[in-house]
């Protein structure tokens, strides 16, 4: 029995398999936001259609789901029905807000007319809000608790299951 082989071999093997094992089950695409656990950046933006300004602070007191999207983004189309359906189901218990950036207002209006909506959609004309939230691409969704603190962030299109799972983090 060659001891060196056993010791060196086991060290390498344990380290390698250990590291890989810990890595299992993690989604490398899931990027943790430094904003999670912090108060959500404040913003007040114009609503598509009505033109009135909506301040995010006015929804304090109930969980808020902020969904960043755009009409030029395919996955956002996919996700849209999920958002609308959940917004209808959850009703007044949770506030949904859509924030559109890098887009034209008439396109957004056309999109909403055609596909329906159940919550306010705001236009982030200069993209400042998206930058404040550190949005890397659309769709991205932030889950705020009733005190306006970000509790979860999700990158990519959600299905109902993912949406509800993240929402739980904001309601607990």
């Amino acid at each position: 029995m060659n001891r060196t082989v056993v010791i060196v071999g086991s060290l390498i093997a344990f380290a390698l398999v250990g590291v890989l094992f810990i890595g299992l089950g993690k989604n490398p695409a899931e990027i943790r936001s430094p904003l999670v656990g912090r108060p959500a950046p404040a913003f007040a933006l114009r609503e598509v259609g009505t033109g009135r300004t909506i301040d995010i602070a006015q929804f304090r007191g109930k969980p808020v789901i902020i969904n960043f999207w755009a009409t030029w983004c395919g996955p956002c189309w996919e996700e849209h029905p999920t958002l609308v359906a959940n917004a209808r189901q959850l009703g007044d218990n949770v506030q949904f807000v859509g924030v559109v950036f890098q887009d034209a207002e008439e396109k957004i209006q056309g999109f909403l007319n055609q596909r329906g909506t159940a919550y306010p959609t705001l236009v982030d004309q200069e993209g400042k809000t998206a930058i404040a939230y550190g949005v890397g691409g659309v769709p991205e969704t932030y889950f705020l608790d009733r005190n306006g603190v970000i509790r979860a962030k999700y990158v990519g299109p959600m299905d109902s299951e993912i949406l509800r799972a993240n929402l739980t983090k904001a309601t607990n």
Binding site: N2, A13, L20
Partner: peptide, 15 residues
């Protein structure tokens, strides 16, 4: 499988 093969290889080499 990787772990099993590692053990197999190390055992063979050690012996």
């Amino acid at each position: 499988f990787l772990a099993a093969m590692l053990i197999y290889t190390i055992a063979l080499l050690a012996l």
